[in-house]
Structure formats: structure tokens, C-alpha cells
Amino acid sequence: MNEYISRWKLQPEDIMSRSRYMNQPENFDLNNNFHTCRGLSSYVENFRRLTMGVVPSASENTISTCSRLTSDTLDAEIRNLPVLDGYVSVKHTGCIVIEIENNTFQELVWRVAFMGQYPQAKVDGKRYQTDSC
């Protein structure tokens, strides 16, 4: 177990600063999932970024979300995702409802996006006009 933790740099002091693509073959291909998704931690990272569409930014004090679920997927949720000095939980219901819970010690700016065109968004019961990207 210690060898696995060391090889994939899963120690607490290394996990946030380790290389994105580790232990790769000489013929590394960025478009080959067997090359880019290696080890449990990279599968979690890809699930978070690709399916859940959750990208935190410490430098901007933001968390951006965009559900990438398909219309036949009912919901997906990721809990206790490490962000800054705490955790966030994000739940996608279908492709048009996103709930976020901020369990950090600071206020985050939430940048939410949806696939498609929507003239309004409802946040905590209040409607807002949307911008197109």
C-alpha cells in the first residue's frame, strides 16, 4: 500500500501539487483515456471535471459548475470535494438543476453554467436573467 501511495503521490502534502499525468508510457497520447486516466485519483478528477463539471479556482476564489449529464441520466452527486480550506458538495438533477453546498470558511463566487439556452435562472426562489456564453 505504501508503494502505491508513493508511486501516485497520494500523500497529503503531495496530492495538490503532483503532476497531472504521472507514470505514463513513452508513446503518451493525450486523447487516449488509458493514458490520461491512470490510478484512482485521476478517475475521480475526470469524473469531477467532465461529468460533474466542477472546477474550483483558488486564485479567483471561485467554483464553476456545468452539468454534463445526458438527458437519460437522472442525477449525480459528489460530496465533500476538497476546495480551498474546506469542502463543497455539488448535486446535479438532470441537466438543468444544480445545487451546491459551501463548507469552506470563506465566501465563494459560484459561476454556474448550463448546456443550452435558458433566458432565466432561479436561485433560492428568485429569478435572474442569464447571459449567453
Results as ranks from 00 to 15, higher is better:
Asp29Glu: 12
Phe114His: 07
Asp75Thr: 02
Leu10Glu: 10
Ser67Val: 08
Gly39Ile: 03
Ala76Asp: 04
Ala58Arg: 09
Asn32His: 12
Met115Val: 13
Ser41Arg: 01
Met1Lys: 07
Ser67Pro: 04
Val123Trp: 03
Arg18His: 04
Asp72Thr: 11
Glu107Met: 07
Thr130Leu: 04
Ile98Gly: 01
Asn23Lys: 03
Cys95Glu: 14
Pro119Thr: 09
Arg111Ala: 03
Arg111Asn: 15
Arg111Met: 05
Glu45Ala: 04
Asp14Leu: 12
Ile78Val: 10
His35Ser: 08
Val83Ala: 01
Asp14Cys: 07
Leu74Lys: 15
Ile63His: 01
Asp29Tyr: 05
Ser64Val: 00
Trp8Pro: 02
Met115Gln: 14
Gln129Trp: 00
Ile63Asn: 01
Ser67Glu: 07
Asp72Tyr: 10
Lys122Ala: 08
Ile96Cys: 14
Ser6Tyr: 07
Ala58Cys: 08
Trp8Met: 07
Leu84Met: 10
Asp124Ile: 03
Cys37Glu: 13
Lys122Pro: 01
Val54Leu: 13
Asn23Phe: 04
Arg111Gln: 10
Phe28Asn: 10
Thr62Glu: 11
Leu108Lys: 02
Thr70Lys: 05
Asn80Lys: 14
Tyr43Asp: 09
Gln24Met: 13
Lys126Ala: 15
Cys66Thr: 11
Asp14Gly: 02
Ile96Pro: 02
Val109Asn: 09
Asn80Ile: 03
Phe105Leu: 12
Leu30Glu: 14
Ser41His: 11
Val83Met: 00
Arg111Cys: 10
Thr93Gly: 06
Ser132Ile: 09
Tyr4Gln: 04
Ser64Lys: 10
Ile96His: 14
Glu101Arg: 03
Ser71Met: 09
Val54Glu: 02
Arg111Tyr: 04
Pro119Tyr: 05
Asn61Ala: 10
Phe28Ile: 08
Glu26Leu: 14
Phe105Ala: 12
Thr65Met: 15
Asp14Gln: 15
Leu81Ala: 12
Pro82Ser: 08
Ser64Asp: 00
Leu40Trp: 08
Gly86Gln: 08
Ser132Tyr: 12
Gly86His: 02
Ile96Tyr: 14
Lys91Tyr: 08
Ala121Thr: 12
Ser71Lys: 13
Tyr87Ala: 01
Ile96Ser: 15
Thr73Met: 12
Tyr87Gln: 03
Gln117Ile: 12
Val55Ala: 11
Arg38Ala: 09
Glu101Ile: 09
Met1Pro: 07
Arg48Gly: 00
Gly125Cys: 06
Tyr4Cys: 01
Leu69Asp: 06
Gln117Cys: 10
Phe34Arg: 12
Ile100Trp: 03
Leu81Trp: 07
Phe34Thr: 11
Phe28Arg: 08
Tyr128His: 12
Arg111Pro: 00
Leu84Ala: 11
